[in-house]
Design a protein around this nucleic acid. Structure first.
Lengths: 63, 63
DNA sequence: ACACGATGTAAAGCACACTTTACAAAGATT
DNA sequence: AATCTTTGTAAAGTGTGCTTTACATCGTGT
């Protein structure tokens, strides 16, 4: 899976730490997802989608 | 997280085994998700959405 | 040069997603 | 009643999502 997390975060001018806090996860989790190290769980994907006001399919995509 | 998997599967008249095969997972995984024992991974959620032709948010929802 | 904020990397540990195998309980069919 | 399909339950094993801690790197500002 691919994702646009880094770009979306940059657009909103959020640091990894700020985004992590809004999502209720550690900064390492944000780093790992941005770097494509692993995919978020479904509940976390929902929270990410909610933070950015976008459907999950517009943030994450099967490559 | 809640989901409508069981109802959607019933509408399409699929058995758990048939759905599992289409999704490329074991039947136990389908059972566990239907029963709410755990949530699917994000990639599996995408495959489920594709099988039913619906956005993820119309199949899974934060309760 | 030094400090500071933001990002990247690594490793150990815990919980959960998924597997395989096996068996039990219903429902439908003959 | 006996069989067959479908569904439910359980348990042990593997891999991944997420945590915490710690340190390295890079860019910017003083």
């Amino acid at each position: 899976m691919n994702n646009h997390l880094k770009e979306l975060r940059a657009e909103r001018q959020l640091t990894q730490a700020q985004l992590a806090e809004q999502l209720g996860v550690s900064r390492q989790t944000v780093v790992a997802i941005e770097k494509g190290k692993y995919d978020p769980s479904l509940p976390l994907a929902f929270r990410i989608a909610r933070v950015f006001g976008l459907p999950i399919e517009q943030i994450f995509m099967e490559d």
